[in-house]
Design a binder for these strands. Sequence first.
DNA 1: CAAAATAGTGAATGAGGCTTCACTTTTTGG
DNA 2: CCAAAAAGTGAAGCCTCATTCACTATTTTG
Lengths: 206, 206
Amino acid sequence: MAYQRSEKMEQRLAANRERILGAARKLVSKGGLREARMGTVASEAGLSTGALYRYFPSKADLFVDVLNAAVDHEILILDKIVEGPGSARDHLRNAVASFVRRALRGPNLAYAFIAEPTEADVDAARMLCRKQFGEVFKRIIRTGIANHEFPEQDVDASAACIVGAFTEALVGPIAPSTRGTKTQDRLIDAVSSFCVAAVVGAGTGA
Amino acid sequence: MAYQRSEKMEQRLAANRERILGAARKLVSKGGLREARMGTVASEAGLSTGALYRYFPSKADLFVDVLNAAVDHEILILDKIVEGPGSARDHLRNAVASFVRRALRGPNLAYAFIAEPTEADVDAARMLCRKQFGEVFKRIIRTGIANHEFPEQDVDASAACIVGAFTEALVGPIAPSTRGTKTQDRLIDAVSSFCVAAVVGAGTGA
DNA sequence: CAAAATAGTGAATGAGGCTTCACTTTTTGG
DNA sequence: CCAAAAAGTGAAGCCTCATTCACTATTTTG
């Protein structure tokens, strides 16, 4: 007669699967994909490397699952906010705040996936460069605040947001595909308007 | 007598160095660090792999140089804008617009460095996730526009900017280090205010 | 309990790619 | 033109993992 898994066995396997996913999540949220070795995942989960391949066909598959699970969870929360009561402005504020709060709190990894580390040296250089860009914007904002052109605001945060905003608008998957100078001009305008409005209106809170 | 490089030789070496940097820049701006093989750089530059190591001690060094050169150039332009005439608002708008325009135009790589590709499958999943986040915000913005809470704006661009803004604020090097719940609360507030102000005030242009 | 099937092990395999090095070619100085 | 120095070559070395696989351990079935 064919082999049939007992209830207990079924559960143990499911538990193993969860432990693997958990270990993978933990590792990737620390050091990114590169540093999340299959061997490390395995031992963290209390299994051998070989065993992982009974649960996931490849490293890529494993980590895609990890990512999807994390993001599904996040999206669920955001959807709930959007469907709740309040104005669109409230929704927007709450959605952003909720995501940021959650990310700050734990080893939530949605964000670790976004900033993939590379080699240490190069990464350091990259950081420095982004910092340099940030400095330029901090300087602009500080001047504007001194002028009373802009309201008081967290200069570091605003500068970071600006750098992030135009970066993502350029390379992110949401970015409208930019063919033709017309589309490009429109994008340039949209992004710079976004940033200006944000800085000019920052503090227009609640 | 000691060997001494002739003028001509000196120039040829300098030219080689430039060709190497150029090749590296070109390759990295296409596929990121991962896909920029030393071998490919070499043949693109018309040299052998071994020769590269006479000019740069390692791959990391080479690409750090590439990155720094590109960014220095960019920063120079931004500084010029900041020092030029106009209000802080003008400076901000022009700085962002200038960067975006430049990035859209050419194989400028400052941005290729920021979004490091990994394995294809994982990358695809990551894209999808960011898209999902974008969708949530697009929906909010669309509703707000329909309500006349928000002005008309490029919904894709705004959503991309929002996702980029909070991502960078969380993980970027400009992000204020977040210890203590007080700092965290402040960051949450700053980032969400930034996004709200941007969307509420978008179109407040020129 | 014995046989069959599945689960788990971890060392060996293999691929990808940076770096090295023994050697060739070119440049320099006399 | 010759010898010394430098520059250039590219195949081999080496290291880092993901993946596999021959084997052991556990579970299921009769």
